[in-house]
Design a protein around this nucleic acid. Structure first.
Length: 331
DNA sequence: GCGACAG
DNA sequence: ATCTTGTCGC
């Protein structure tokens, strides 16, 4: 089952920002909603204020839900207010009356809603089952970025019993979809699938893959690890450093201890205190694995680092390759 | 009003 | 994820 066409969110956002009439303002959330998910508001704001691509757009016509001015490129809020006022919009006490100046009549593409439906379709194909006890090899995958658009994926194959590295593989490609929490797969899956295809051709595909990102620990239970497992039809496990959703008691956590992460009344992951310092890592089932065997496997692969050996190694490999690419294109 | 939002 | 200075520890 191929991935759906990946929407060009930047182009869709540009169309909408350019549609805000002079003398009116829209909110980051309204723009995000027209793209299909208000939770993309954070990305909308960071793109309008941080990307050179948006420098010539009327980004000053986008403000906070409260009517407050919000962020501006180069932190030049005064400049943003100046532009707003030059369009005869009234700014009083640092805020705009949205009832008077607000604009919310966007054409909706609901692209993100379509991607959510795709995740829900994928969920129907997930298999949660114990890992095969006789697994021989484990691999880690991770992505690093030489620039916001240029990604490098790293794959490190481990022999399970000796925990020695058997082989390594990297692959670089431009990515076009932004990072939006809950939609990570649409950013990183294309490159990961291409990487696994190459690994498969070399006969180096592992019996199970540890993914740097969550599995069932996801608003719709279809995180990157789960989605990768389904698309590549391989057992996967999600290992993340931060919680995406759900709650977990993190008081008096002792090294080696594991506690459930509950989301919507369901245990979707285990928090595992892997090192004496810092917070726990979060382990969840991806595909063709269950939570118990995922935690058991990750425990055996902990080797002093915060992340399990294969994930740690994949991180190092992808980061090194990305830095080489960054140096080759810069100075 | 405060907290939250993988990489 | 990436951007970054100093700092602590093996």
């Amino acid at each position: 089952m191929p991935l759906p066409p990946i929407p060009d969110l930047v182009r869709q956002l540009k169309t909408r920002v350019l549609a805000i009439p002079p003398g009116r303002v829209a909110t980051y959330g309204a723009l995000a909603a027209s793209l299909g998910d208000v939770r993309a508001a954070k990305w909308v704001a960071s793109f309008l204020c941080g990307s050179p691509q948006a420098a010539n757009w009327p980004w000053h016509r986008v403000v906070l839900r409260t009517g407050e001015i919000g962020p501006a490129p180069d932190r030049d809020v005064a400049g943003k207010i100046r532009r707003i006022r030059s369009e005869r919009i009234v700014v009083r006490n640092g805020a705009i009356d949205l009832a008077r100046f607000g604009f919310d009549d966007f054409k909706s593409s609901a692209s993100l809603a379509r991607l959510r439906r795709f995740q829900e379709d994928a969920l129907a194909k997930v298999s949660i089952q114990p890992l095969d006890k006789s697994l021989q090899t484990v691999a880690g995958v991770d992505l690093s970025y030489a620039s916001p658009r240029q990604a490098t994926a790293g794959y490190v194959l481990f022999d399970y019993r000796s925990q020695h590295v058997l082989s390594t593989c990297t692959l670089s490609a431009p990515v076009k979809f932004p990072y939006i929490a809950g939609y990570l797969a649409f950013r990183e899956l294309p490159l990961l699938l291409a990487l696994l295809q190459r690994v498969r051709e070399k006969g180096q595909l592992a019996d199970v893959i540890l993914v740097d990102g969550h599995g069932q620990l996801h608003p719709r239970h279809v995180g990157l690890a789960t989605h990768l497992g389904i698309e590549a039809n391989i057992p996967t496990i999600g290992v993340g450093k931060k919680l995406l959703c759900g709650t977990c008691d993190r008081q008096n956590f002792r090294v080696g201890e594991a506690r459930p992460v509950v989301h919507a009344g369901q245990t979707v992951a285990m928090a595992l205190q892997s090192t004496p310092q810092g917070g726990p890592i979060y382990v969840s089932a991806g595909h063709r694995a269950d939570l118990a065997s995922a935690v058991e496997l990750v425990r055996t692969l902990l080797g002093g680092h915060k992340l399990p050996g294969p994930t740690h190694a994949a991180h190092a490999v992808s980061r090194n390759a990305a830095r080489h690419i960054a140096m080759r294109s810069n100075g």
